[in-house]
Simulated assay, not measured.
Amino acid sequence: MTAPFTVAIDGPAAAGKGTISKAVAAHFGLAHLDTGLLYRAVGVRMLLGEDPTKAAQTLVAQDLESPDLRSADVAQAASKVAVIPDVRAALLDFQRAFARRAGGAVLDGRDIGTVICPQAEAKLFVTASPEVRAQRRLAELRDRGFETEFDTVLADVKARDDRDTNRADAPLRPADDAVTIDTSSLDIDAAVAAAIAVVAARRAL
């Protein structure tokens, strides 16, 4: 059986970590978990009137398939429930078990390298300027049929950054041993290539 190999990829919203994580997982044949979907799924249920802690404790796989997970409202709800310690605790074991599965895994989120998997064999912190990230998120939302304006999206991105970096429990920050990749001026192929190079170097150790 192949020994577990965990890749932790953190970063703010719309920096490209999801796309990079999927590409890294595919390249190395690893399982992939977008941990943000867990919080988005809890956020959906909170918006429907549920207590977020109870929602986190009773989350099921089908919750991760909701068509509303990528909406702007749910993104904000996810950021709000993510500051609740009991919600984070309820989702912790699920993420750690996934990370150490046989054959290895790539997890992306906000606190993978610092809290969820501090012993991960490879750690990346993927970032970009707020303006670049807002432009990407705007294009993504419009592609999905959501009509909004750049200034609105930029304000949302900055508000989410503020919440994520200043929350008391597991704030967004690079792990001390993470390699930072700034995608502000990189196209996706270059960003993926940079990430694959980092992981390949760690796997060779």
Results as ranks from 00 to 15, higher is better:
3 A>Q: 08
4 P>C: 10
5 F>R: 03
6 T>E: 04
12 P>V: 13
15 A>G: 14
16 G>T: 12
20 I>V: 15
20 I>G: 04
21 S>Y: 02
22 K>D: 11
27 H>I: 05
31 A>H: 05
32 H>K: 12
32 H>M: 02
34 D>Y: 01
34 D>M: 03
34 D>I: 06
37 L>I: 09
41 A>Q: 00
41 A>F: 01
43 G>D: 09
43 G>F: 12
45 R>P: 04
45 R>A: 00
48 L>R: 15
48 L>N: 12
50 E>K: 10
53 T>L: 11
54 K>F: 00
54 K>S: 13
54 K>E: 14
56 A>F: 03
56 A>C: 07
58 T>M: 09
60 V>A: 12
61 A>R: 08
62 Q>C: 03
65 E>H: 08
65 E>W: 00
67 P>A: 14
68 D>H: 11
68 D>F: 11
70 R>M: 08
71 S>P: 02
72 A>H: 00
75 A>H: 03
76 Q>H: 13
76 Q>D: 14
78 A>I: 08
79 S>T: 12
80 K>G: 04
81 V>D: 03
83 V>W: 06
83 V>E: 12
84 I>H: 09
84 I>S: 06
86 D>W: 01
86 D>E: 15
87 V>S: 11
87 V>A: 11
88 R>C: 07
91 L>M: 10
92 L>G: 00
95 Q>T: 05
96 R>M: 09
97 A>K: 15
98 F>I: 09
98 F>K: 05
98 F>C: 04
99 A>R: 05
100 R>N: 09
101 R>W: 07
104 G>C: 02
106 V>W: 06
106 V>Y: 04
108 D>M: 09
108 D>W: 10
112 I>P: 02
112 I>V: 09
113 G>W: 01
113 G>Q: 02
114 T>V: 06
117 C>F: 07
119 Q>P: 01
119 Q>K: 12
120 A>S: 10
123 K>N: 03
124 L>A: 02
125 F>S: 07
125 F>C: 09
128 A>W: 01
131 E>V: 13
132 V>W: 01
134 A>I: 11
135 Q>R: 14
138 L>Q: 03
142 R>K: 14
143 D>Y: 00
143 D>S: 13
151 D>C: 07
152 T>R: 10
153 V>H: 11
154 L>C: 05
154 L>W: 07
155 A>D: 14
158 K>N: 15
159 A>G: 15
160 R>G: 14
163 R>C: 06
166 N>M: 06
167 R>Y: 13
167 R>A: 13
172 L>N: 05
172 L>Q: 11
178 A>Y: 06
179 V>Q: 14
179 V>M: 10
182 D>S: 01
185 S>L: 12
190 A>G: 00
190 A>R: 15
190 A>L: 13
191 A>M: 08
191 A>C: 10
192 V>N: 07
192 V>K: 10
195 A>K: 08
196 I>A: 02
196 I>W: 01
197 A>Q: 13
197 A>I: 01
197 A>F: 02
198 V>H: 13
198 V>K: 09
199 V>T: 01
201 A>C: 08
202 R>M: 12
203 R>W: 03
204 A>C: 03
204 A>E: 02
